[in-house]
Write a protein that binds this DNA or RNA. Structure first.
Length: 257
DNA sequence: AGCACA
């Protein structure tokens, strides 16, 4: 018998993530996922819903399958908000992918047709039932009213992450007067809503990581401390220009002291 | 555990 492999799902651009911490709010979750996954390649979309059925899970849509594969392997079990992430490929192609490869229109058309057909059949069945019942008893038990198709998933704002521009080489930063190497990094151009957890997830991957400090009054900047300047230097190079959101390229320099 | 997207 086929040994139970965790990956009997064929590779696809989308990574299905589960065992996510369900207490994290959706927008933050999406941003954090974007932040740690984008190191593997351009991300087209991150989908997460908080419905009963979908909570604790998310879909990270890469442009390329190779990036998805890297992510599945390297982030498997990664401690994310205190829970090890579980990763597999998604079972079905994401809409973002379908939009790129041109199959989205076809899919929509097929869905519309299927829906129409189902409606037609349901109507036919109802008519038949009514006729049968009517001819036998004359009772008026026809037409069961059908509730349940009111799918309004609108939770107010729906600022799904815009399609990330394709992989562009990290722009060299024109820092003014760079401070000399030291164990503390200065990080700029962060999204305002960034928090220590999100940042620590990025920086803790580098050896010697000690802590991240946000500056209470000031949005968009942070300090990250390492054991020594070699380690801070490695993290600096590794995360320079990192796209923490589609529109925020992190700027990392040595802190002035 | 749980595979969605307007």
């Amino acid at each position: 018998m086929p040994a139970e492999g965790t990956s009997d799902i064929p590779p696809i651009e989308t990574v299905y993530v589960n065992n996510l911490n369900e207490r994290i709010n959706k927008e933050e979750l999406k941003k954090s996922l974007y932040a740690i996954f984008s190191q593997f390649g351009p991300i087209l979309d991150v989908v997460a819903r908080k419905t009963y059925r979908m909570r604790g899970q998310a879909f990270v849509v890469f442009r390329d399958i190779t990036a998805a594969t890297q992510a599945v392997r390297q982030l498997q079990g990664f401690p994310f908000y205190d829970q090890p992430m579980k990763l597999t490929y998604a079972k079905a192609k994401s809409d973002a992918t379908a939009k790129l490869d041109g199959t989205f229109e076809l899919k929509q058309k097929a869905e519309r047709q299927a829906k129409r057909k189902a409606e037609r059949e349901a109507r036919a069945a109802a008519e038949l039932a009514a006729k049968t019942a009517g001819s036998k008893r004359g009772a008026d038990e026809a037409a069961g009213d059908e509730h349940g198709s009111g799918k309004r998933g609108r939770t107010g704002s729906e600022p799904a992450l815009p399609v990330a521009p394709s992989a562009m080489p990290v722009a060299p930063s024109l820092s003014t007067q760079p401070a000399g190497p030291n164990p503390i990094l200065f990080v700029e151009n962060l999204p305002a809503e960034v928090n220590a957890m999100m940042l620590s997830m990025l920086f803790q991957q580098f050896p010697g990581y000690k802590e991240v400090r946000l500056v209470p009054g000031k949005a968009g900047i942070a300090f990250v401390e390492f054991e020594d300047e070699n380690q801070s230097g490695a993290a600096k190079r590794g995360l320079q220009g990192f796209k923490i959101t589609p529109q925020n390229l992190m700027q990392v320099s040595f802190a002035k002291r």
